[in-house]
Design a protein around this nucleic acid. Structure first.
Lengths: 143, 143
DNA sequence: AAATAAACCTATTTATTGAGTAGGTTTATA
DNA sequence: TATAAACCTACTCAATAAATAGGTTTATTT
């Protein structure tokens, strides 16, 4: 499995905030309850989202979290890259990775680049607005 | 990161065997040396590939491993699914997964289905023959 | 000013899975 | 009969994911 709870929770929270817009700042407690995620764990995820400016956090009574842009302006790819710390399929493609000694003879690195590109292209084609509209899928998307 | 060493090693071994075809059975020892992988660990991976008939293994002197088909007849997707035990991005899409209680209200499951399909479609579009030809990439595939 | 509600911060623990080892058994060839 | 190989079961170690704990700061309300 390749997407961890950090990424999945982050996406759910962002979608939740997109759905409940207008009610300005939503406190951690409310988000944790609505999404059934432990407050403390969620807190550490939200911290990352705030530090990357995907969310704004405000302290004190009446405070909480809020989107910093319109839902159409976020892509799933951006949110996941922030929450997961990257989306590369293999270590040798992470940026800042020390060059692989087998790079010259490696028959598979091209495949990994292709996979990385396909994944990012797809995830960047879906916005937060699409998610809460929830008409994704096409093809074999049944239910 | 989402592809483990089992998948990566499996793919490298399959590509190795495709490149060294004709010299029929190649022993574990040789493969491990050529690919710089521990014999014991590789053994456990090859066992999986044999049990799924991607490779044929023959014991005794002169034995070893061999492809069971022409390289064009394997896709990277098939090899990775066997080696990794699946390629689904999230647990709730694995087959045999117990139904998620949030499924009805989940805003993200559609995205995961889409991602799963995109990944499998891409990986199934690349054959072992493509890998050893190594003209993958296109786009931003520079070295 | 005091009480309170909230985010923010650092560190630690626990659980899970990935990665790798160890040692023996069976099969086939020379 | 010796040997080269795959096959098999079980175990250990390491890394990372997941979660927890407890405190500090900031802003609002009374």
């Amino acid at each position: 499995m390749m997407v961890s709870t950090r990424g999945r929770y982050a996406l759910r929270i962002m979608a939740d905030l997109a759905e409940h817009r207008g009610q300005d700042y939503v406190p951690l407690k409310t988000l944790a309850q609505r999404q059934e995620i432990s407050e403390k764990y969620l807190e550490s995820i939200l911290k990352t989202l705030v530090s990357h400016r995907l969310l704004a956090g405000v302290r004190g009574p009446g405070g909480g979290y809020r989107l910093t842009r319109e839902p159409e302006k976020y892509t799933a790819g951006e949110i996941l890259r922030v929450a997961e710390g990257g989306l590369t399929p293999v270590a040798c493609l992470e940026d800042g990775a020390e060059p692989c000694p087998r790079a010259a003879i490696c028959r598979t690195v091209g495949l990994w680049r292709g996979l990385r590109d396909v994944v990012n292209r797809y995830l960047d084609s879906v916005t937060l607005a699409d998610l809460i509209r929830e008409d994704l899928g096409g093809d074999d998307y049944v239910i």
